[in-house]
Design a protein around this nucleic acid. Sequence first.
DNA 1: TCTCGCCACTTGTATAGACAACTTCGACGG
DNA 2: CCGTCGAAGTTGTCTATACAAGTGGCGAGA
Lengths: 251, 251
Amino acid sequence: MAAIRRHETAPLYRQVKDHIVGRILAGDWHEGERLPSENELTRALGVSRMTAHRALRELSVEGWLTRVQGDGTYVAEVKPQSALLEIRDIRDEIAERGRAHDCRVVHLARQGATAEVARALSLAPGAPVLHSLVLHREGGTPVQVEERHVNPAFAPGYLDQDFTRTTAFEYLGGLGPMDAAEHVIEAELPGPVVRELLGLGPAEPCLLVTRRTWSNGLVVSRARLSHPGSRYRLAGRQDYLANAVGKGTPQ
Amino acid sequence: MAAIRRHETAPLYRQVKDHIVGRILAGDWHEGERLPSENELTRALGVSRMTAHRALRELSVEGWLTRVQGDGTYVAEVKPQSALLEIRDIRDEIAERGRAHDCRVVHLARQGATAEVARALSLAPGAPVLHSLVLHREGGTPVQVEERHVNPAFAPGYLDQDFTRTTAFEYLGGLGPMDAAEHVIEAELPGPVVRELLGLGPAEPCLLVTRRTWSNGLVVSRARLSHPGSRYRLAGRQDYLANAVGKGTPQ
DNA sequence: TCTCGCCACTTGTATAGACAACTTCGACGG
DNA sequence: CCGTCGAAGTTGTCTATACAAGTGGCGAGA
């Protein structure tokens, strides 16, 4: 086993974690198999035991490993997981309903991150971010305002795209695999810009889905998707195998 | 600040964590307030800096604290939120946030199914259904109106329960395993009853989650869960791949 | 053969010390 | 007045060391 490359910018314990996960994914270590002990890893990777220990402990918390005091460290059994929210291209959804999709790019520019955007993207306040505001219509009626702040480190060419032809979803997805997503759903009364774009009345509520996506540990973008609340719904159905999902019994 | 009692069986870093959470819950430290630095905690609690650091780091991952390198440690803002499409007992969610839960049964009766309810439960229009309307509060402020139509074929004793002691979730879950759930999420302006129960203004939107659950092919119940949209959020994060876990900061 | 105790090895925790990275703020000089 | 620099303080990481706690196996003795 080669020593961990120390010139990386990432902290050492993170490199150790990536190394171990990499070997599991590569098939070097199989489910249930015993890993080298902390002392062996320490020698093999050229790090201190505390560093190896932190990496192993976090991987254990994250479900990759199972550790037994006095015994050893094992590759955890994969747990059955069910999809919660499926991420889909709005154009595909509309096409599936047999309607015509078109969209209008309202705004597209490089901006300095506000404090809130910076926090969402894990960037420094004022750091440059790429901003887009697009209105999607289905059969002529507005169904979604898509506001997006994109991390330029991930998609430097974002502003050069023609989003009337390629959706941002499609473009970003083509740049690299997304490995995590976070969804927050809120109801709100939209601001004047969104209200005007969606053609809403002054007291008509709006369904706001805020989605952040990660690729390789980097926050790729934060999308704020506003839908007219009374005309749009998010729906999903999950089928449970026995008690596979969650600890609690469904409501 | 008294020194941590070292004779406890629990590990020291855990005692430090408990101590800090305890002080937050006790109101010694408020949301957004700055905590003593690691060095101060080290001196005050009589532990090493690494131990204090581990406690603070884990509390940060768990969402209790926000840490800014070079600046300090702050008590995180808690916004009531429930897991997205994960079915959980609202009482557990509130308890996890360290808040007090109480509820009020507004209505509880047998009714004839309206056309819409009958369709939702796959019953004949006019067939008897069991109806409940419960207001849930978190630390005294209303967070959810739970309206439920229950299939009497599944839970004939539903009306005899004391829902201030046992949640409907708990009771129905104990009757049999749920094997499917459907969620529909909408934003809406609530009707007068819900508005009054939640204490909302006339133009304040509402997050409406409609959930149907099945057991053994039978529709068990339809729940309509109304949350104040501006004060409540549904959130969830999925990890799709290996390296995803880590850098992303939970809100 | 069975049991007990010991030993080697593993993971878990705690500490002290060091340096890196970052923020804030005030002093200084233009 | 403004910008720059640096000092002080904060969190983040890494190391070396030590001991505690738990597991498994081996051997001595009943």
